[in-house]
Write a protein that binds this DNA or RNA. Structure first.
Lengths: 221, 221
DNA sequence: CGACAAATGCAAACATGTTTCCATTCTCAG
DNA sequence: CTGAGAATGGAAACATGTTTGCATTTGTCG
C-alpha cells in the first residue's frame, strides 16, 4: 500500500568492508531506470555489473512466447551481473526494473583496481558466487520436493528479508507466480491457503506478512 | 552393455593448461571408491575438492525420506567439490560413487600453491563457477518450460557428451528419473516416446543413442 | 466523479505426473 | 543351469497444476 519492499541485501558489494565499499561505489556511475525498463538482456556482452542503490530489479528469463521465469527479485543493496562479468561470457539472464530505481554501474576498470588493491576481494567474489550456486540448488530442490504453498511461503520470506511481522511486500500475484514457477491460478489458491492459516493477508498489489515464524515452520513440513 | 559411459569433461581442472594440470594432479592423492560408496555428505566441512580419474560420480541430495535429487552425473575428467571449498562453507550436496571409481583429492595446500604461482588460475576458477551457475539456471528453466521427454533428451545428450550415435549410456531408468526429476513411471513413458521416434533404444541398464541430432532438434521444440 | 486499466477471484475442462500394484524380463553369482 | 535380485513394463486411481473465460474489485488519472 505504502512503502517500498526492502529485501535482504545479498551479493558481493554488501559483503565488502565499509570503506572499500564506499570507495568502489564512488567510482561507479549512477543511472536511473523507470519501472519496466530493460536493464540488460540475455546475450548482451557483459562489460559491467550493477549495484542497486534504490528500487527493485527482477532477474529472470523471457521466453520467446512471452513466458517469464523469475529467478530472483532484488532490492536495495543487492548486486547483480557479476556472473557473466566474471565468467567473461554473455549475459545469462534478463534484468528488468521492477520499480523506478537507481543503479550504480561498476565497470571493468573499477573492479580491477579493487582486486589489485586487495587480494581478499577475489576471495570474496568466489565466496559470493559459490553462494549463488547453492541458492540455485536450493531452488531446484524446492521445486521438486515442496508443494506450491510451501514454495510460496519460501518466496515470501525471502522477499520480506528480516522485516518484522506486519511488513507489506509490494508484489503482484502474477509476479509471485513467475517467481514460484506456477500459473496465477495456482498461486492464488496457495495464497488462499496461507491466508486461511492466518500467516499472511493478501492485498491489491501487495501481501502482508502476519506470522513469519509460522511460515518458516510451514516450509519445514 | 559393455564400455563405460564417458561424459563431457567439464569443470575447473580440465580447463587448466596441460602442464599445470599434470602438476596439480601429481600433487594430489589418489583414492578409490567402490560403487555406491559415499564420497562426501551434505554438511561436511570442505577441506578438499576432487578430480575424477576414472569411473562415475553422482552429485545430488538425499532427502530424509530417502528421496534423491540428482543435479549431475559426472565422469572422468570432471571436477567437483570446488564449490564449498571455495565458498568456505559446508558441503551443499552429497556425492556418491556411481560406479567403482578412482578420484584424486586436491587439498588446500595444493590449490593455494597453484593460485600463488599463476594468477590466471583464480580467473579460471571464477569462470568455472560462473558456468556452474549458468548451468543451474538452465536446469531451472528446463524444468519449467520443457516437457519430460524434452528434459530426458537433454539429460541423455549431456550424459553421452560428444560421443557419436550408437553410444551406449550405462544408466538405469531410476537414475535417469532422479536426474530429470520425475517418477520412474513417467520416465518410462518418456523413454517410450523417444524410442518410438527412433531417437534412442532403451536397454537393460543402459540406453543407446540412435540419433543425437534428432534429440537436439526435439529439445528445441 | 467516472472511465479505464490493472489486479484479483472463481469455475470447469483438461493435461500431466504420481502412487501403488503386480507381472515380466534380464543379469549374475553360485 | 538355476534361483534370486535388479530392472523394466504396464494399468488404474488419484493428486496437482494448467488453461480458458469471465466476473469482480481496486487504484489511477483525466
Amino acid at each position: 500500500m505504502n512503502g517500498p519492499a526492502p529485501m535482504a541485501a545479498t551479493g558481493f558489494v554488501m559483503a565488502l568492508p565499509g570503506p572499500v565499499r564506499r570507495d568502489l561505489l564512488a567510482r561507479g556511475q549512477a543511472r536511473s531506470f523507470s519501472k519496466g525498463q530493460i536493464i540488460q538482456q540475455r546475450g548482451d556482452v557483459a562489460k559491467e555489473f550493477w549495484y542497486i542503490e534504490s528500487g527493485a530489479v527482477q532477474i529472470g528469463r523471457y521466453g520467446i512466447d512471452g513466458r517469464l521465469i523469475l529467478f530472483a527479485m532484488l532490492g536495495a543493496g543487492d548486486t547483480f551481473g557479476e556472473l557473466a562479468f566474471m565468467g567473461e561470457f554473455s549475459r545469462a539472464v534478463d534484468a528488468i526494473a521492477g520499480s523506478d530505481c537507481i543503479l550504480i554501474r561498476i565497470g571493468d576498470r573499477e573492479l580491477q583496481s579493487l582486486m589489485d588493491a586487495d587480494p581478499a576481494v577475489t576471495r570474496l567474489l568466489l565466496k559470493t558466487m559459490a553462494l549463488t550456486v547453492q541458492e540455485s540448488f536450493n531452488l531446484i530442490e524446492a521445486s521438486r520436493n515442496l508443494s506450491v504453498p510451501q514454495r510460496l511461503a519460501q518466496a515470501l520470506l525471502k522477499l520480506c528479508g528480516d522485516q518484522p511481522d506486519g511488513a507489506e511486500i509490494m508484489v503482484t500475484q502474477q509476479d509471485l507466480a513467475d517467481l514460484v514457477g506456477v500459473s496465477r491460478v495456482s498461486l492464488g489458491k496457495a495464497l488462499g491457503r496461507l491466508q486461511a492459516a492466518g500467516m499472511i493477508e493478501p492485498g491489491y498489489g501487495f501481501v502482508t506478512i502476519r506470522d513469519g515464524a509460522a511460515l518458516q515452520k510451514f516450509i519445514a513440513d
